[in-house]
Amino acid sequence: MTATRRPYKRWHWLVYLLLVIASVFFLIPAYLVIITSLKEPASINLSTTWQLPERWYWQSFAEAWTAFAPKLRNSFTLTFFATIISALMGSMNGYVLSKWRFRGANIVFPIMLFGMFIPYQSILIPLFQFMRSIGLYGSIAGLILTHVVYGLPITTLIFRNYYAEIPDEMLDAGKIDGAGFFGLYSRVLFPLSLPGFVVVIIWQFTQIWNEFLFAVTLTRTDSQPITVALAQLAGGEAVKWNLPMAGAILAALPTLLVYILLGRFFIRGLLAGSVKG
């Protein structure tokens, strides 16, 4: 792929111009959030929205941090456990569905998969009744369980497609050596699974961190994740905009960091979400 492959090079300036315009569109909100979060509350007014702060004011972050630190901790606990558990279960399911094909697997798989597309409103009322009956209502554990279950379809899908590309011959070799179900998994597949795990973990991390509907209906004040706290802060009244903006940055930072550092895997998860990948 050399730079000379395109015969219409003279149009290249136009391509760059359009790309820069598009970049501005994508970056404008980021610019506004950052400068607003660094302005003094008193100096925020609508007509000077776009101007840089006259004086850099870091206090909003300190305030947002005091308000949000417990919520961030909730989010981390929730995301950590839900991601790990759903990834492990998804890996096992993917292994079974791709390497131990049984009759009816072609029916079971889409039935599992459908669970990731449903509007969660359609299970919301029974969900919290169920949570109440098993005593997990309002706790982070209950939210973890919820995210594990509704995360299973996507993690299963990604691992199934990932393992499908590992040739069966490798397993056959293991079988000849006398390895059973778990032996094959731990000796042959698991060591090869790292990229699959990275994709799944990043995907689940982003999804769970960003989720709102379950979070708002299944938690109490002390188990709230960050998204709920942010929505309530910003939806509240007469708050000056510096605080919600600083809060938005805090809420966005973990997933943004993951995206910037591990973008390649992030995109792969994104593409895997469209079923065929």
Partner: peptide, 28 residues
Amino acid sequence: FRTIFLFPMALSFIVTGTVWRWLLQPRG
């Protein structure tokens, strides 16, 4: 460029909503 175009995907709808609400204020 690709990173710029894709980064909003990493955000929560709640974050996006909060930010755009500020962008779309009637007099700002």
